[in-house]
């Protein structure tokens, strides 16, 4: 029972290191199942380091619990999906093959995919409307299509926690919106817990339940968009004049005018 009551992610006093350098100090945050945490902050603030530490790719100290449990490396790969900023797209690999790689952590002895694995990846392709692309090479896709294919791989992993590092950095504003909307609808439909590093503060405010603002390796603000996306807090963290406008729909539009 504790599993359902415990937060999906519990980060307690975590410090992250890159070699001898401390890139993030004493971050603590809890995230309920099914919610979306946006990591925001200037370049080098430690957003990617925190994401990488959650999946145990980076060096860190402190406690990370998932639904109240510590997870081994093998369990992490089953329960947490991670999409880096620029996912590699190997030449000569088809979309269907790429998405099937999402099943890696679930394969048994001899690592042969079962029909069930193939069906799951097919379903992920269908959810992201990628059926007609299945036989295309991943290197032949546009930026927006490639990002959808990466998300399909994440879905095929059937993890309940999804970590996204700047998922929209290479996209135009139309595709940025559609990718974030897609992540949001998948989250709501499948009950995923999402942690995403985002540069677009307006979008972060619209889509995330909670924001964590990192600056020079420390957490400087945490909470709802109303609390974090204020001119004062952002101007100080980004070291420039930031204006926040309340849009008619209640969301916040963040502009840098400095």
């Amino acid at each position: 029972m504790t599993r359902h009551l415990a937060p999906a992610i519990q980060i307690d006093n975590v410090s992250c290191f890159y070699g001898d350098t401390t890139v993030l100090r004493d971050v603590s945050v809890e995230l309920e199942t099914g919610s979306w945490l946006g990591l925001i902050g200037p370049n080098g603030a430690g957003k990617s380091s925190l994401l990488r530490s959650i999946i145990n790719l980076g060096q860190y100290e402190g406690t990370m619990l998932f639904h109240g449990e510590k997870l081994s490396r093998a369990q992490l790969a089953k329960r947490i999906a991670y999409l880096p900023q620029n996912p590699s797209l190997p030449s000569g690999m088809t979309v269907a093959e790429y998405v099937l790689l999402g099943r890696t952590a679930h394969l048994g002895w001899f690592e042969r995919e079962t029909q069930a694995d193939r069906d799951i990846s097919l379903d992920s392709l269908a959810r992201l409307e990628l059926g007609p692309f299945a036989d295309r090479f991943v290197t032949d896709l546009s930026g927006g299509e490639a990002q959808r294919v990466s998300l399909a791989r994440v879905l095929a992993q059937q993890a309940d926690i999804v970590l996204l590092d700047e998922p929209t950095s290479a996209l135009d504003i139309g595709h940025q919106q559609s990718v974030l909307a897609m992540v949001n609808s998948l989250r709501l439909e499948l009950g995923l817990t999402v942690v995403a590093a985002l540069h677009d503060l307006t979008a972060a405010g619209r889509f995330c339940d909670e924001l964590l603002l990192l600056h020079k390796g420390t957490a400087v603000a945490h909470g709802s968009a109303d609390k974090v996306l204020t001119s004062k807090v952002l101007s100080s963290a980004y070291e420039t004049d930031v204006t926040v406008i309340n849009a008619p729909d209640g969301s916040r539009v963040v502009l840098a005018l400095g």
Binding site: T94, V95, A96, E97, L100, E113, R118, D119, S121, L122, D123, L125, A126, R127, L130, G131, P132, A134, D135
Partner: peptide, 17 residues
């Protein structure tokens, strides 16, 4: 809708085989 065209099925079946 999760209807998938035949080519997607074939591609998934052939993947890595």
């Amino acid at each position: 809708m999760t209807a998938v065209g035949l080519s997607a099925h074939q591609a998934a079946k052939r993947a890595f085989r």
